[in-house]
Design a protein around this nucleic acid. Structure first.
Lengths: 135, 135
DNA sequence: CTTGACCTTGTAGTTGCTACAAGGTGCATA
DNA sequence: TATGCACCTTGTAGCAACTACAAGGTCAAG
């Protein structure tokens, strides 16, 4: 399977796949006579794993860890568990942060009742008196 | 006021302030005889505005728009309103996305009941059979 | 035999900073 | 007076995780 096919099958751009290979996240593919990358079903599974982990918000570094761990079939899976737990906590924290951000924006929106910018409390509550410079 | 003071007053690193100036987000400061940047209270207010908007999740491009708009005191503030509304929608969408992500991670955590990685359903549900390459 | 879709490598751009390096300035202290 | 130290200057490079070229090679269809 060529890179374009693999890309389509996983919803990943070909350039991203090459990038993963450069970064050692994915193993290098075989090459055809004409030097095209030639992927197996194993590559498909590997890329699926990576993409799924990325979608779950794991960083590249975390994905690397997950890959390392999943290579060691005999190890207790406590460490995998731990990684997932950390990621969950991070996501929960981000939700908390975004929620208070959302509340602030809602307040801001409600504060605009004027018609002109110099009367607008949105601008006022961001508070900015200075003229800016051109780029 | 020198850059370090302004930095402390706004909780911004000096390097970030210089970056904002380079990017035209902040107007250039006056210079002392020894070529140090010399800031006024107006600069303080401007930087406060920028930092506040950034904390609210507005991109640099959006901050630029907000700055442009707030320069035009006579305009109706509909556009400011619109920007805030867009940002609010984006934040709300991000909360939705992160929430389903959180749910998936919770499921993943609950699915791990085995002791060895080759029996671990977390790794299994990320599904990855291929050996990786060294960096 | 040419067109067009694909592939190759290598390099540079994105966002919003952050971190140097190499040198100049300003002020307190020995 | 010297000197040490915190501060300032410019310029450049790095971060994450891609994305977007450019310049050229390959291959099948018409």
């Amino acid at each position: 399977m060529r890179i374009g096919e693999l890309a389509k099958a996983t919803g990943t751009k070909a350039e991203t796949i090459r990038y993963y290979e450069r970064e050692g996240i994915l193993p290098a593919a075989d090459r055809t006579d004409s030097n095209y990358r030639d992927y197996s079903d194993n590559h498909l599974a590997a890329l699926t794993f990576v993409r799924r982990a990325r979608q779950l918000g794991f960083s590249m570094a975390q994905v690397r860890e997950l890959l390392d761990l999943s290579d060691r079939a005999d190890k207790p899976c406590q460490e995998v568990d731990e990684l997932v737990r950390e990621q969950l906590e991070e996501v929960e924290q981000r939700i908390v942060d975004l929620s208070s951000l959302r509340d602030e924006l809602r307040l801001l929106l409600r504060s605009c009742q004027a018609n002109r910018i110099d009367e607008c409390r949105i601008v006022g509550s961001l508070a900015r008196p200075l003229r800016r410079v051109a780029r």
